[in-house]
């Protein structure tokens, strides 16, 4: 059986204390669904983990009706996200996507923040949150920054977080009408995810899982050439879930059906 390396623990209920502790050797830790296996495999070797789960400020789900946003704490689990009435009312596509992440154990322990900050490309939430135009609040002892999801996730397993920063909350505008999320998942993790926001005037298409990071395009409704150019221009991954040609074909086929552009 695999064994974890020697590890220290910083635990506090106070956000400032937590922020004071986080650095390159002191890794933020919440659900552990990504970090613990990564430490077991020797891919991450922090001296200590900094537990975020006891910081109440990171566990809220709050609605601001005036602003039309739901603010979600980074330490909120997928399960809580998918079951929360506010999320189900204002962000039903996000709630549904969260209800299908991993398995029931991963959903019980894994968190929104962990999912975004690990930046595993084969993931759902980044794609859906980018499509929703969510923003992330990132904090360190030095202060706070607000980033778009695009600015936060900059590559495969790569975020723009500094070693002393943590993601604290994600502010998500209420879901617009005409939104959907579809994924192809033949393996443990998704092969391809597509979030759509379709209005009379435009198609917003966000592609995830098959790309290094979620990628969004806004296309004038009916502009099939523009849509094709976007699909053809995507850099799709080549891995065991399939070669780029395959993923592009599945994506093209899905978009044709979903947007009613079948030739």
């Amino acid at each position: 059986m695999a064994v974890l390396p020697e590890l220290g623990l910083v635990r506090s209920g106070d956000l400032d204390e937590v922020l004071a502790a986080v650095d390159y050797d002191h890794a933020p830790y919440a659900g552990g669904t990504e970090l613990v296996p990564a430490m077991g495999l020797g891919l991450r070797r922090p001296a200590a983990i900094v537990d975020l789960k006891r910081v109440e400020a990171l566990k809220g789900i709050e609605v601001d009706a005036d602003a039309g946003t739901v603010t979600i704490g980074a330490a909120v689990t997928h399960r809580r996200l998918s079951d929360h009435p506010v999320v189900r009312e204002h962000l039903p596509t996000l709630a549904a996507a969260a209800s299908r992440v991993g398995n029931a154990r991963v959903r019980s322990t894994g968190t929104v923040g962990g999912n975004l900050c690990f930046a595993e490309p084969r993931s759902d939430l980044g794609c859906v949150l980018l499509a929703l135009g969510a923003t992330a609040e990132v904090r360190s002892a030095r202060g706070a920054r607000i980033l778009s999801i695009d600015e936060l996730i900059v590559g495969a397993f790569e975020t723009s977080l500094e070693p002393d920063e943590i993601l604290t909350t994600v502010a998500v505008p209420f879901e617009p009408p005409g939104m959907s999320y579809w994924k192809l998942q033949s393996y443990e993790r998704p092969t391809l995810g597509v979030a759509l926001v379709v209005t009379e005037s435009q198609w917003e298409v966000t592609v995830g899982a098959a790309t290094e990071r979620p990628t969004r395009a806004v296309i004038v409704a009916g502009d099939t050439a523009g849509l094709a150019a976007f699909v053809d221009g995507l850099e799709l991954s080549d891995d065991m879930t399939g070669p780029p040609d395959y993923k592009r074909s599945v994506l093209r086929g899905y978009l044709e059906r979903a947007l009613g552009t079948t030739r």
Partner: peptide
């Protein structure tokens, strides 16, 4: 009440 993978959950939690 929640199902947890005990192989990758830490006892300190």
């Amino acid at each position: 009440g929640d199902p947890v993978s005990s192989c990758t959950a830490l006892a300190c939690d």
